[in-house]
Design a protein around this nucleic acid. Sequence first.
DNA 1: GTTATTTATAGCATATATGCTATAAATTGG
DNA 2: CCAATTTATAGCATATATGCTATAAATAAC
Lengths: 96, 96
Amino acid sequence: MTHISDLHNQWLENPEYRATYDALEEEFTLATALIEARSRAGLTQGELAERMQTTQSVVARLEGGHVMPTTRTLEKIAKATGSRLKISFEPDAAHT
Amino acid sequence: MTHISDLHNQWLENPEYRATYDALEEEFTLATALIEARSRAGLTQGELAERMQTTQSVVARLEGGHVMPTTRTLEKIAKATGSRLKISFEPDAAHT
DNA sequence: GTTATTTATAGCATATATGCTATAAATTGG
DNA sequence: CCAATTTATAGCATATATGCTATAAATAAC
């Protein structure tokens, strides 16, 4: 069974992949969070799309992590999955 | 002294405002979070803009809550303010 | 293994966020 | 007050997310 995080760990050993890791991380975690929210709501992509007033292909694209969605889209997802969207900037100890 | 949350509470009594409250809430809280992150970092809009590779007017627009930014922009803000971006969909008890 | 269901990809038009310059408005320091 | 700094707004070009249809690929049900 190939889970996305397995791929993730596997790819970590590829230097070229590591180079772009920072930029991709958010897309990975966001896509994962989205998939989890949809699972929790027990919806198919098509059903979620309907509640978001869009189409299944749009949801697939979002879950594929191929875009950096707007907060407008994130809000629609939250509402459609019975979730509450939370966005925060947490002080990063490592940086400060 | 006019704080954004004061205006918020004040406007809550205006019915017309209440009608669009849901759609605006996220912009309010996000803008507030952004302003806080910048304050924490001790940066002016111009300085933050420079670190984000953009201009002061763009930061002003974001903080004004007049746009629903992409996660790409949120990531830039996080990095520039020494923060870590967190996005999550939390199960909403009230809905379920 | 065949069918039905679900998910992923492609390609294009449209909407919206971003990037930018200039300038106004507001705030701060003296 | 005045000057300097900071923040807000306007307007336009560009980049990117979204909306859409169609179809392929993968999974699940039987």
